[in-house]
């Protein structure tokens, strides 16, 4: 079975139906980019995958376990799915290494020594070893986002969800974050990204999913999708963002 398996997923906010039946299978090691206009439901889909939003209908399976709010505790879930946010959301009162160590210490009850070793390893991976004792306010946006990636990786998740992780960054800082994600992709990390970086989606993804009005409108390998879109909606979308 696929690592992530979504079947007939529905989600409404009040009257507004945001997801109108999503089916999606993602294999371990796959890098999947979700693209689409704002309001197409792509962030909601991502947030359903780690239960920041509870879906109304349909099923999500993750590593053969069903998610529906109760089956998996938040602690277990966080060891399966990591998430990186658009606005970093680092904890301002904790240093870089404390940010990264917090969940292993508190949620996994990892001994402090080992938590520190794990934190140092993931911070090295994102190139932030020099700044372990800095506070978030002392870092650039790109550095903060790399720490946020390290913080998610410290729980050793099977999937990393990235919700427009470069959208809040100054253009010159986007590259350093994308490079980290590229490295992760190369190491075989399963990545699901909601992104506006079309070049990145094309170059790094194994698969691109185009969402439109709450449905998966078109999906496929990036080369085909970007060069020969089958639907007029995707064609229009590509024309508007490239």
């Amino acid at each position: 079975m696929a690592l992530v398996s979504v079947k007939d997923l529905h989600k409404s906010f009040g009257e507004l139906e945001v997801l109108k039946g999503i089916d999606l299978e993602i294999e371990a090691g796959e890098v999947v980019s979700i693209i689409g206009r704002s309001g197409s439901g792509k962030s909601t889909l991502l947030r359903c995958l780690n239960q920041l939003e509870q879906h109304d209908w349909g099923t999500i399976h993750l590593a053969d376990q069903r998610l529906d709010g109760t089956a998996m505790s938040p602690g277990e879930l966080s060891q399966n799915v990591g998430m990186v946010f658009q606005s970093f959301n680092l904890f301002p009162h904790k240093t870089v290494i404390e940010n990264v160590m917090l969940a292993p210490l508190v949620v996994k009850q990892t001994p402090r020594e080992e938590a520190r070793r794990i934190a140092e390893a993931v911070l090295a991976k994102v190139g932030m070893s020099e700044k372990v004792d800095a506070y978030p306010a002392q870092l650039s946006g790109g550095q903060q986002q790399r720490v946020a990636i390290a913080r998610a990786l410290a729980m050793n998740p099977k999937v990393l969800l990235c919700d427009e992780v470069t959208s809040a960054l100054d253009p010159e800082l986007v590259g350093e974050v994308l490079r980290v994600l590229e490295d992760l992709a190369r190491e075989g990390m399963t990545l699901i990204l909601v992104t506006h970086e079309m070049k990145f989606a094309r170059d790094v993804s194994d698969r691109v999913v185009f969402m439109h009005q709450g449905r998966i409108h078109e999906s496929g390998d990036p080369q085909t999708l970007f060069t020969r879109p089958r639907t007029p909606e995707l064609n229009q979308f590509i024309a508007s963002v490239l």
């Binding site: 780690n50 920041l52 060891q79 998430m83 959301n89 508190v106």
Partner: peptide, 18 residues
């Protein structure tokens, strides 16, 4: 407290008390 702080904590698996 910003909503993002709560969401980051939840995504990391922290309970409400934690």
């Amino acid at each position: 407290t910003l909503k993002g702080q709560h969401e980051a904590a939840r995504a990391l698996g922290l309970s409400r008390l934690q």
